[in-house]
Design a protein around this nucleic acid. Structure first.
Length: 871
RNA sequence: GGGCGGUUAGCUCAGGGGCAGAGUGUCGGUCUUACAAACCGGAGGUCACUGGUUCGAACCCAGUACCGCCCA
C-alpha cells in the first residue's frame, strides 16, 4: 500500500536507475517501428544545470516519451560541448591562483590540465541532467572533442578549405584583450555606453587653418593615417588634396574624400585609423592607406604609439592623450555622447578591433542553401515568427571568423612551412613541406566552439563513416532550443547539415522562451535572482518542476517563474498519489474486466470525458502547446476524476460493484499513462502498484481515444446532478449548515429530475449532506424551507428546525440581479433585427435557447422569493 | 534608428469575433474513513487608451502610451 503522502526522493532515485538498467531510453538501430530522433543541445562541460536547461530539456522529453508510447523507435542523443573559451578561462584562472600562466606552463601541460579538469568535472552536468528524468540515450553519449568527433571536425575543415569555402586573411577582427582571443561578430554584445565625443584640431601646416575631427576614441588618433571628408562638403573643399598635421605624433596625413563620410556627424570630418576601426579599415583598403597598429592584443599601446604612450593600457592612454592635447591646445571641446560599444560575451570586457591573420568561413554559399531550406518548408520554426528573425540575420550575414587564440579546442589542421611559408591544410600533419621539403609547424589556434557544434546532428551519429545510426536517425525530427542561439548554433547546423549530408539536420525547430524571474529579468548570478532547478527538485520533486515548466511554456513567450506555482504542482502530485491510494484500497489484487452494457452513469461519464481529454492532449502536444496539455490533464485529474468521479462512485464501491471497480482501475491506468510524459516518476511508481502492470509505462501504449466511449447523454445527466449538488452546497454554506446536519430535499419536478436523480440518491446524500429526497409537483410552504433553483428546477431544503430566511433571500436576490443583467444583454441582442438577419442561424438558435433557460430560471427565482416573503 | 513580444482578477498567466477563464492569494465554513500539500462555498474585471470595421470586438484593423527583449 502507498504511504499517506508522496515523497519524491526515493521514487526518483529508484526509477532513474531502473530506466537506465532496463535500457528503456535506447534507440534501436534495427527496428520495424517508425523512428523519432533528436539530439540534445550539448550543455557546456563547465556548466551547471540552470532553469534554462531544465525548460529546454523537459519539453522535448515530454514529446519523446509521448512518441515512444505511441510506438515510435525514439532516440534522443545526449552529450556535452567542450566550450573552448569557457574551459580555457577556468584553467587560466586556476593557473593564476598558483602564480602561473598559460605561457609559463606551455601548451602541452595546459591541455593536460584541461583534460584532467574535464574528466573530473565534465560529468557534473550530465549527472544533473539525469535528475530531470530526461529519456536520453546515454549509450550514444558524445563529446565534441572525443576522437571521432574531432576527426569529423578536421574532415569538415579540410573539405571546406579545398572548396575555397575556408580561407585565411589579414583582417580587422574583434578581440577580447582579457580572454586574449579574437571573437566572431555575433560573440560581441553591444551595450549602450555613456561616453564623450572629443573634438580635436588637426592643423594645416603653414596656415592658421585646421580641420576639427570628432571621435569617441581619442587614443586611436595615434594610429591615424588620414582625415576623411565628404567630397561635396563645401566646408572642407579647400582641404582637398592637402596634408594636415597629426598632433602628438607630428606626422603629416592626407585629407581624403569619400561618399561614406556622414556630413552630419560631429564636424563632418573624421579621423581614419585603418588598424583600429572596422569602418576605417574598409576606408583604408579603398584608399590604400597605411595600417599602423598602436594597440596590441592585450589592449596596450605599442611602440608605434610613441615613446610617451608605449606600454600604457588603452584607457590610461586615452586620459593621457586628452590631457596632452589639452595642454598643447589641440582639444577644441567635448560633448556627452552615448553610443553602442561591443563587449565580450564571455567576460564583458570592451572588445578591441584587431588587425591580424585569421581563418574565415565564406558564408554566403552556405547561407543561401540554409535560407532555401526554411523558405520551402523543409525546416519549420515553432512559433513561426522566429522565421523572420532567422531570415533577417541570414540575409545580412558576414563571413565567419573561426580561429581563436586559445589552446583548448580543435586545433586548426593547417600547417606552415618554416622555410618557404607554404600553407598546407590536411587531416594529418605532413612530414615535410610539400613544396620545399622544409619543416612544418601546425597553426597555433583552435576553432570557434560553434564550428564543431554545427556538426552535432550528424557527427554524433558517426559521420563521416556511413554508420547504421546515421542512416536510421538522420535527419532528426525536432530541435528544441532557446532563441538566443538561433544564430550561433541553429543556423550553422542547418548550413553544415545541408552542406555535408545534403539534407536538413532537423525538420522542426521548437524555440522555447527564456526563463526570467518574476520581474521578467533574465536570471543571472550577478543579479542574484537565480532559481536553481536542483534546489527546486529537492524541495518540490522533479515531477512538480517538470509540470510547472510545461504549464508555463506558452510558445513564443518568456516565462516568469514563480516558486508558488511549483508548490501548487507538488500538491497536484500528492493529489494523484492519494487518489491512487483510494483506488488501490478499493481494488485488491483481483483481475477485473467490465461489462460495458450495464455501466452506471458516473462510469459512462468519466469514460466519455477521458476520451475527450485524450483527443485534446494529442492535439495540444502535436502543436507543442505544452501549457494547454498540462492544464487539460490537471483539470481532468483533479476536478473531474477526483472531485466528482471518485466521490460519486463511493456508494457503488460500497455495494461491491465490480463494473465500477473495473472502470475506476482502467481510468486510473489511462490517467497514469497520459500523465507519464509530464510526471514520469510518480506515474511509474503508482502504476507498478496496479494489479495488472508491465515492465514500464514507457513500453506501454498511449491510450486511444475511442469514439464509442463518447456519451453525450451521460455528460448532460452528470451536468444536471453537478448543478443540483452545487446548488444544495451553496444554500448550505450561505446558511451555515454543518455537514452533520442532514436536510430533507424537495425537488419540484416529478419527471425528468426524478429520472436523472433517482438512481443516485446515495451519491447526492453523500455529496450534499441530504438524508431524504422527495419529488413533488408543488413546493410545500414551510418556515423551515430554504429554496433555490438548480438548472431550471426548483429545490427546497427542509430543516428540522426553523431558520432565518433572510440570508437565503439575499442570496436569491443577488442571483436574480445577475440573471436579469445577462438576460437584458441577451434580449437587446435578440431584439436587434440586424442580428437575426446577419448572425449565423446556429448562433441565433443558441441565443434563443439561452433566453428560454434564463427566463425559466427567473420565474422560479421570483416564485421562490415571493413565497419566502409571504411566510 | 529597425524588428519582435506584452498590457485581461491582488499576483502569475491562459483565451482570441457570439455567457470573462485557470492557478495562486484573499474571505467564510469543514479534521465528510484517499488526500488539511485536503474538502465545500463566496468575493474579486472599464480585458492599457483612442478611433475604425462588424448585427456583435477583450479578440480584427489603424494609431497612442507604457513595459520588456533582439538587432544596428
Amino acid at each position: 500500500m502507498l504511504e499517506k503522502a508522496y515523497d519524491p526522493k526515493p521514487v526518483e532515485a529508484k526509477w532513474s536507475k531502473f530506466w537506465l538498467e532496463e535500457r528503456l531510453f535506447e534507440g534501436q538501430a534495427k527496428s520495424d517501428k517508425p523512428k523519432y530522433s533528436m539530439v540534445l543541445p550539448p550543455p557546456n562541460v563547465t556548466g551547471v544545470l540552470h532553469m534554462g536547461h531544465a525548460l529546454c530539456f523537459t519539453l522535448p522529453d515530454i514529446i519523446v516519451r509521448w512518441k515512444k508510447m505511441q510506438g515510435y523507435n525514439t532516440m534522443w542523443l545526449p552529450g556535452t560541448d567542450h566550450a573552448s573559451i569557457a574551459v580555457h578561462n577556468v584553467i587560466e584562472q586556476s593557473l593564476k591562483e598558483k602564480g602561473l600562466s598559460r605561457d609559463k606552463v606551455g601548451r602541452e601541460e595546459f591541455l593536460r590540465l584541461a583534460w584532467e579538469w574535464k574528466e573530473k568535472y565534465g560529468g557534473v552536468i550530465t549527472e544533473q541532467l539525469k535528475r530531470l528524468g530526461c529519456s536520453l540515450d546515454w549509450s550514444r553519449e558524445r563529446f565534441t572533442m572525443d576522437e571521432g568527433f574531432s576527426r569529423a571536425v578536421n574532415y569538415v575543415f579540410v573539405s571546406l578549405y579545398r572548396e575555397r569555402l575556408i580561407y585565411r586573411d589579414y583582417y580587422l577582427v574583434n578581440r577580447c584583450p582579457r580572454c586574449q582571443t579574437v571573437l566572431s561578430d555575433i560573440e560581441i554584445e553591444h551595450q549602450e555606453v555613456k561616453g564623450h565625443l572629443w573634438y580635436i584640431r588637426y592643423p594645416l601646416p603653414g596656415t592658421d587653418e585646421a580641420i576639427v575631427v570628432a571621435t569617441t576614441r581619442p587614443e586611436t588618433m595615434l594610429g591615424d593615417t588620414a582625415v576623411a571628408v565628404h567630397p561635396d562638403d563645401e566646408r572642407y573643399k579647400k582641404f582637398h588634396g592637402k596634408k594636415v598635421l597629426l598632433p602628438l605624433q607630428n606626422r603629416l596625413i592626407p585629407v581624403i574624400t569619400d561618399e561614406q563620410v556622414e556630413k552630419d556627424f560631429g564636424t563632418g570630418a573624421v579621423k581614419v585609423t585603418p588598424a583600429h576601426d572596422p569602418v576605417d579599415f574598409e576606408l583604408g583598403k579603398k584608399h590604400s592607406l597605411e595600417q599602423i597598429i598602436v594597440i596590441d592584443g592585450l589592449g596596450r599601446m605599442t611602440e608605434a604609439a610613441g615613446e610617451e604612450f608605449k606600454g600604457l593600457d588603452r584607457f590610461a592612454c586615452r586620459e593621457k592623450v586628452i590631457s596632452k592635447l589639452k595642454e598643447l591646445g589641440y582639444l577644441v571641446k567635448l560633448e556627452d555622447y552615448s553610443h553602442a560599444v561591443g563587449h565580450c560575451y564571455r567576460c564583458k570586457t570592451i572588445i578591441e578591433p584587431y588587425l591580424s591573420w585569421q581563418w574565415f568561413v565564406k558564408i554566403e554559399p552556405l547561407a543561401k542553401e540554409a535560407i532555401k531550406a526554411v523558405e520551402d518548408g523543409r525546416i519549420v520554426f515553432i512559433p513561426e515568427n522566429w522565421t523572420k528573425t532567422y531570415f533577417d540575420w541570414m540575409y545580412k550575414i558576414h563571413d565567419w571568423c573561426i580561429s581563436r587564440q586559445l589552446w583548448w579546442g580543435h586545433r586548426i589542421p593547417a600547417y606552415y612551412c618554416q622555410d618557404c611559408h607554404q600553407v598546407m591544410v590536411a587531416m594529418e600533419k605532413p612530414a615535410a613541406c610539400e613544396r620545399c621539403g622544409g619543416t612544418v609547424v601546425q597553426d597555433e589556434d583552435v576553432l570557434d566552439t560553434w564550428f564543431s557544434s554545427a556538426l552535432w546532428p550528424f557527427a554524433t551519429l558517426g559521420w563521416p563513416e556511413k554508420t547504421e545510426d546515421l542512416k536510421v536517425f538522420y535527419p532528426t525530427d525536432l530541435m528544441s532550443t532557446g532563441f538566443d542561439i538561433i544564430f550561433f548554433w541553429v543556423a550553422r547546423m542547418i548550413m553544415m547539415g545541408l552542406k555535408f549530408m545534403k539534407e536538413v539536420p532537423f525538420k522542426e525547430v521548437f524555440i522555447n522562451g527564456l526563463i526570467r524571474d518574476l520581474k521578467k529579468r533574465k536570471m543571472s548570478k550577478s543579479e542574484g535572482n537565480i532559481i536553481d532547478p536542483l534546489e527546486m527538485i529537492d524541495k518540490y520533486g522533479t515531477d512538480a518542476l517538470r509540470f510547472t515548466l510545461a504549464s508555463l511554456a506558452v510558445p513564443g513567450m518568456d516565462i516568469a517563474l514563480s516558486e508558488e506555482r511549483m508548490a501548487g504542482y507538488r500538491a497536484f502530485a500528492n493529489k494523484i498519489w492519494n487518489a491512487s491510494r483510494f483506488v488501490l484500497m478499493n481494488l485488491g489484487e483481483e483481475k477485473t474486466g467490465s461489462d460495458d452494457q450495464s455501466l452506471s452513469l458516473p462510469n459512462r461519464w468519466i469514460r466519455s470525458r477521458l476520451t475527450r481529454v485524450i483527443k485534446q492532449l494529442n492535439d495540444s502536444l502535436k502543436n507543442y502547446r505544452f501549457y494547454e496539455a498540462a492544464e487539460t490533464i490537471y483539470h481532468f485529474i483533479w476536478h473531474e476524476f477526483c472531485d466528482w468521479y471518485i466521490e460519486f462512485i463511493k456508494p457503488e464501491l460500497r455495494q461491491g460493484n465490480k463494473n465500477t471497480r473495473a472502470v475506476m482501475k482502467d481510468v486510473l491506468d489511462k490517467i497514469l499513462k497520459l500523465l507519464h510524459p509530464f510526471m514520469p516518476f510518480i506515474t511509474e511508481e503508482i502504476w507498478h502498484h496496479l494489479p495488472e502492470r508491465g515492465l514500464s509505462l514507457l513500453t506501454e501504449s498511449w491510450p486511444e481515444a475511442s469514439n464509442q466511449w463518447l456519451d453525450e447523454e451521460a455528460e448532460e445527466a452528470m451536468k444536471f446532478l453537478q448543478d443540483l449538488i452545487s446548488e444544495i452546497r451553496t444554500i448550505r454554506a450561505k446558511n451555515q449548515l454543518p455537514v452533520k446536519e442532514k436536510v430533507h430535499l424537495w425537488i419540484s419536478d416529478q419527471g425528468e429530475s426524478r429520472r436523472l436523480a433517482g438512481p443516485h440518491q446515495e451519491a447526492i446524500r453523500l455529496l450534499a449532506g441530504v438524508d431524504k429526497i422527495e419529488y413533488v409537483t408543488e413546493m410545500p410552504a414551510s418556515k423551515n424551507l430554504l429554496k433555490g433553483v438548480a438548472s431550471t428546477i426548483e429545490i427546497g431544503l427542509q430543516l428540522a428546525r426553523s431558520v432565518d430566511s433572510q440570508p437565503e433571500m439575499e442570496r436569491l436576490q443577488k442571483e436574480l440581479a445577475h440573471l436579469e443583467e445577462d438576460l437584458a444583454k441577451l434580449l437587446a441582442r435578440l431584439e436587434n433585427p440586424d442580428f437575426r438577419q446577419r448572425a449565423p442561424q446556429a448562433v441565433v438558435t443558441e441565443h434563443e435557447q439561452r433566453r428560454q433557460e434564463l427566463q425559466l430560471k427567473r420565474e422560479k427565482l421570483l416564485k421562490n422569493l415571493s413565497e419566502m416573503k409571504e411566510l
